[in-house]
Computed example of a mutant assay.
Amino acid sequence: MDTTDIFLYAGYLLIIIGAIVAILMPLIQSLGDPKSLLKTVAGVVIIGALFGIAYSSASGEVAAKYIADPFNITPEGAKMVGGVLITVYALFILAIVGIVITELNKLIK
């Protein structure tokens, strides 16, 4: 094991610690204000519903060359990736629309 491996594992550890802290600290802060926690749960539920709709509309078709080695893509995996992509596209469009509406609102005021 050389220093590159050690630094990679240290980086992985720091990313994991950062992700845990990023998730736990807002939860700890929101215990004092349960309404903010309710807003967070509502956002997660809405994104989950959006993913459910995207997953159900995604195609599970896989080209023959991707079914075999080295890819081994299954129809379920292709449908999951398609659902994630459709969700990301929808959230991107929603963000752009939100930015345009906010700028127009600022322009009017």
Rank of each mutant, 00 (worst) to 15 (best):
I53H: 04
A10S: 08
L27F: 14
A49K: 04
P34Y: 09
D33E: 14
S36G: 09
T40A: 15
D33C: 09
I53W: 10
G43L: 05
V41T: 10
A19G: 05
L27V: 11
G32C: 09
A10R: 07
S36N: 11
L24K: 08
G32A: 14
I47M: 09
D33H: 15
I16W: 03
I15F: 06
A42R: 13
K39I: 00
L31T: 10
I17N: 00
P26N: 07
V21H: 06
G52R: 15
V45C: 09
A19T: 07
G48Y: 05
A42E: 11
A10N: 02
V44M: 13
L27E: 07
P34G: 13
S30Y: 06
A49P: 01
G52T: 11
L37Y: 04
L37Q: 10
G43M: 03
P26T: 13
L24V: 11
L37V: 09
I28P: 00
I15K: 07
S30R: 14
G43I: 06
G11E: 02
K39P: 02
Q29C: 10
I16M: 03
P34N: 13
I23L: 12
Y12A: 08
I20K: 04
I20G: 00
K39V: 03
L13K: 01
L38W: 14
L50D: 00
L13D: 04
I46K: 12
I17W: 00
I17P: 01
L13T: 11
G32Y: 13
S36D: 10
I23F: 12
A42M: 07
A49C: 03
V44N: 05
I16A: 07
I17D: 02
P26F: 15
I16K: 02
T40I: 07
S36V: 09
F51T: 04
V44D: 02
L27P: 04
L37E: 04
G32P: 02
K39A: 11
G32T: 12
M25V: 13
I17V: 12
I28D: 03
I46E: 08
S36W: 10
V21K: 12
V45E: 08
G48N: 06
G43Q: 03
P26M: 11
I23G: 00
L37M: 13
I17Y: 01
F51D: 05
A22H: 05
A42V: 14
A10F: 05
I53E: 09
L24R: 10
D33R: 15
V44I: 15
L31D: 08
I47A: 12
I23A: 08
L38Q: 14
L38R: 13
G32Q: 13
L14G: 01
Y12T: 01
I17F: 06
G11L: 07
T40R: 09
